[in-house]
Design a protein around this nucleic acid. Structure first.
Lengths: 339, 339
DNA sequence: GCCGTGCTTCAAATCGTTTTGAAAAGATTT
DNA sequence: AAATCTTTTCAAAACGATTTGAAGCACGGC
């Protein structure tokens, strides 16, 4: 393996000069710089990353912990995220070390990875309100970036969509169409994003002088189905639903069909669409009106932000709150005439 | 971060002594060794892998490249394998670094990871016949262990089930039951395991003086269905099928039902079962006779073998060829009386 | 009292890089 | 031509571990 010393001897230069020449420092003359570059290429020099890391204190590796469901499967989208994240980091000369969260203590896998002390930082996802992992990493002073924002006053690096605006935009659209009885079928409030959606929903409804109806549970089809069915059977049934996901929307669609209601004539539906490939908003009949913010779009920014954090950029400059796009399709229409 | 120097200063010992004490060298007295161990624990010492690697050439980290399908999903079983592998390596003080194969050149991700030269070795899976990755790693002299055997005369470390025996055992069982027309619905021959299954099948059939019928394609339900349908419609329809997987078996079952045939009265089925949780052999009606070899059982041995290879154990001693278990259930029965 | 003999411990070199502080060379001013 | 300033180069320290060769110490034998 060619080393700096080899190149130095070849050219009768010190390793220091060779190092600076290759790293493009201005204090080495252009002529030597070129000569060094050329000989380095000729001799097939590759910097020894290990040595580089030893002296710089950086390892060029970041960690991520996979949360796995009890049946040892994971989210369908996970692989796409993983792929894109790996690619985004790879461009930045950074590798991803994976660990698996086997339940019990959410902090344990982070502790284990830190113990090995070869990691520069972490990428976290799916933060919960008062997430213990975030508290842990901050207390230990370990750099990290979160996909999601655990609290509105977060003082760490994150990438997140504006979940309050997601609800607010949907409410505004529906109110403009004349809807007054609007229900939110939300995710479990344990998740920070769901809490934000609820806040945004309540605020927007209050702004229009309307009474909010909401329920929070897992974002699965059956939840959408049972809750929508129950709400439609109640005294003042909603004329519009805000769905936490397209999966939930599928359940709501099934419930309205069971009740003999038509979309959008009797019931309007707006869903949030994170572009899961499984349940596509455009495949609905009628196609779903959505607030759209593909999860995969987070990968590039997350990599970028983490590198910024590692580079010492202050946290406030490493926060991205993105607006979801409101896409109006066939599942929303004017509110039905009052009965 | 605690270093050897810190411990040395704490105990008024040289770093050399501390290093030897922690690595259990005999030339340091028992008393100091214990004292050092204890203070190291107390101070939370963790060896710096980067520094270790620089001087020893070992980093305690191994790599694995994930092959992802074009739709960016991966095998359902993948997470379980990943979990178990991580755990098995963790016990051996080794970390797993993941990269993702984004198509195009199968060797490229390995090259990238090697360039970073912080890895001690690799775990490969799903080898193909004449796998370029294996050729590459061997040519570069990089240690690796393969889950699967790319060729019968493999001269590298691997863990694999005896795929020729898988077919042979099934054939022997069926022949003992009186079957003469037996078909193999195999995986694509590009995969080394499928080539082995075919060889074993042909050899076993020849041994019994029978003419083999075989087809090779992706191990999915539809392949089992279409091929079985075609074969059952042919001149001398098989009375028994060997299926590459339980998924394929599901297709074959559907095809026999479509033809109005009954299992095992008219058609017997033997499948290979690698214990995917999705399509379970015992959930079939009747439950499937299988050659069983859970994929997950490979994790411990793979970790063990890789560490052996890294420790310099010669390749021939790092090869494991495991027999699959033949489990006879309701899907096999005596051959039907000749028409 | 001198010298070998184990048994422990140590200082120093090593790995390949980055970075600091100083020296050498060249250019400019006095 | 001496003095000063700039530009370029260098030797050495640092990162944190392992490993080599040597030294300190107590011991008993001569």
């Amino acid at each position: 393996m060619t080393t700096l010393k080899d190149i130095g001897e070849e050219l009768s230069l010190s390793v220091a000069t060779v190092s600076r020449a290759l790293n493009g420092f201005p204090e080495v003359s252009l002529r030597t710089r070129q000569k060094v570059r050329e000989t380095a290429d000729r001799m097939g020099y590759r910097p020894n990353r290990v040595a580089q890391r030893l002296v710089t204190g950086r390892s060029g590796m970041v960690g991520m912990v996979l949360k796995i469901k009890p049946d040892m499967t994971a989210d369908e989208m996970f692989f796409e995220i993983l792929t894109r994240l790996t690619a985004a980091l790879s461009v930045r000369e950074t590798d991803l070390v994976l660990a698996v969260d086997q339940g019990t203590d959410p902090v344990a896998p982070y502790e284990r990875m830190i113990e090995r002390n070869i990691l520069d930082g972490f990428i976290l996802n799916a933060p919960q309100t008062n997430d213990p992992r975030i508290a842990f990493l901050r207390q230990r002073g370990i750099p990290f970036v979160v996909h999601g924002r655990a609290a509105p006053d977060a003082d760490y690096a994150f990438y997140e969509i504006d979940n309050q605006a997601v609800s607010a935009d949907a409410v505004d659209l529906l109110v403009a169409l004349g809807h007054k009885s609007i229900a939110l079928i939300n995710g479990t409030l344990r998740h920070a994003y769901a809490a934000d959606r609820l806040t945004g929903f309540k605020t927007a409804m209050a702004r229009h002088g309307l009474r909010p109806q909401a329920t929070s549970e897992a974002v699965i089809e059956s939840h959408g189905y049972t809750k929508a069915l129950a709400m439609l059977a109640a005294g003042t049934p909603p004329t519009a639903f805000l769905c936490a996901s397209t999966q939930v929307a599928a359940g709501v669609v099934r419930a309205t069909a069971d009740r003999g209601l038509r979309i959008p004539r009797d019931v309007s539906i707006v869903a949030h669409d994170d572009a899961h490939s499984q349940v596509r908003a455009v495949d609905f009949d009628p196609p779903l009106t959505v607030t759209r913010a593909p999860l995969r779009d987070a990968c590039e920014p997350l990599a970028e932000l983490l590198l910024d954090v590692l580079g010492g950029k202050p946290a406030p400059e490493c926060q991205r709150l993105i607006k979801a796009e409101l896409i109006v399709r066939g599942s929303t229409g004017p509110a039905p005439k009052e009965a």
